[in-house]
Nucleic acid binder design. Structure first.
Lengths: 174, 174, 174, 174
DNA sequence: AATGAATGAGCCTTCATTCAT
DNA sequence: GATGAATGAAGGCTCATTCAT
């Protein structure tokens, strides 16, 4: 039950930070959304900053794990498709997180206040993800408007492009 | 004279809003950076929100104008290249603004508080810009790390792609 | 067992209240120092204020008792010396308490919130103690820096002063 | 007028800190007593701690100056009396301050948070003052209950004691 | 007897904003 | 046009206190 309160706080914070921005979201508001008293937040997190860091920690672990599972696929012929699907799923499952992530990547000071690992990780994952999803435009587009995104088309096309005999416009800059 | 103070405030605000986020930037800080008393800000802008709106107005006008000039080129053979170069220049000249713009596009509530026109404009320009620069990945990449961006290569390639006989993968999703 | 927890709480509270002040000491801190959960404190005391009152009760009883023992000495020739030694011992044994007591005597509002008895007692004891220890300066000095206090000299001198044939400056204002 | 607000804040703070204790006095309460908005306090002082330090600075300067004036008296025969009267006046004029000072001297942590100079000064002045006023008991008594303090008797007696031919109980420990 | 998660009032501080100068 | 003292609401955080376990 201890974990439940903590999780609800993290979930509420992620949602609000993502949609309103970290600085514009008050702790009071976050606690309210999580359905707990505001003081409780400080039983689990040392500060509002620490809560932000915790969100990154959790999502980073989730992403890392998803990729590892996908990459461990033994069958080479299915591997690419699984990776691409995993990438889309990762974006999908953590949509709020990416939204938050995009904001913070634009703010050098805030970014620096998070641990070193976040900075490196954010860059690495973005590269990883985008090399699969073709480009940040796709990812960003998908984050903002998932309904109208042609997931299957994109998926099929990506696979096609990376499969021998496909060729075409290969060496595009990212 | 009047305009000089106003401009310095707008410039300071843009820089700070972009690098630290709108909510995390205080009016005091902005006035300090602009080298004026904090009260003066309210001679020119009704509120902090109005200042943000003013930044959008100014940058929107700048972008619009740049495009118009480029598109008015009479010579068809040079037109595409000029447009592409204009797009890169626009991003370059307003780098802080794009940084800010990306943050705010992620925040539905903030976005809505700006005028309707901003919402539509932001979307339209992004599409316009990105259809030229290929994708937001490129634009975003360029915003964050302009030093290492292969401007000329990209430019050449884009022109190539849109020039007859290029063809190929045209209908890519954005 | 019951008493042990209670005593540890009182001891911890006395130490912290004395060295950091009552208001600046948190219940959490006190419980931590006592090595118990913070909730337990409310099994023994109705409130933080009641804990303060309890400290006074305990120390007041201790002081009272010490004096009674000393004053009950039958042998007139030894009586004075024993009283003086008792006074010094009382100060010594309850050093933290005096420290706390001095602080609170300066704060009319806090003092009033304690029971009526405390106010009267504090004044009476101080007078009693100081008439023996010569003055609050001595007592206060001794509280703050017991190492360098010439206990024996003071003791001897006091006895001398109050012993017939000493006389001299008797009716000094306190 | 800037100075007036500042002074009113300092005066209100001194009074409240002295009578209720530093930690138990809220900034809101202080501002209210001073008749200003609570935010204004931070135009003049960086923090509540800084305000406490400012109080010490001001009173320390006042005390120092009073002593200097008294000590500069050329006439040797009047000098002692003037010094003693000055000491009493100093205590009188800064009664709230001494009250506060006594409290804080009992709290090692708070004391340490004030500048080094305060620690040394407090000790030196106390010694200085008390060697004149005979002892902290007198001073403390006078602080708490000035109405009933036999100022003139004490003054006369002190002078007598330090004047040649007086002698008597000279080498008392302080 | 004992724990510590949970509460919400209140703390110190910062903020956007106003207005006399 | 420009200043900065002044305001009071709101922010992040800590606190004394309660209560289910």
């Amino acid at each position: 039950m201890r974990e439940e309160s903590r999780d609800r706080i993290v979930a509420a914070a992620l949602e609000l930070f993502a949609r309103r921005g970290f600085a514009a979201t008050s702790v009071r508001m976050t606690a309210e959304r999580a359905g707990v008293a505001q003081g409780l937040l400080y039983n689990y997190f040392e500060s509002k900053d620490a809560l932000l860091q915790a969100i990154f920690d959790r999502s980073m672990a989730d992403v890392r794990e998803s990729f590892e599972v996908a990459e461990s696929d033994a069958d080479p012929s299915a591997r690419l498709e699984r990776l691409v699907r995993a990438a889309l799923e990762i974006v999908d499952r953590n949509r709020e997180f990416w939204r938050l992530s995009y904001q913070i990547r634009m703010q050098p000071e805030v970014l620096a206040s998070l641990g070193e690992d976040v900075v490196g990780w954010a860059e690495a994952t973005r590269a990883h993800l985008e090399s699969l999803l073709r480009d940040a435009g796709a990812a960003q587009h998908y984050v903002l408007d998932p309904e109208n995104y042609p997931v299957d088309d994109v998926c099929r096309e990506i696979v096609a492009r990376f499969t021998p005999a496909g060729g075409g416009n290969g060496g595009r800059p990212t």
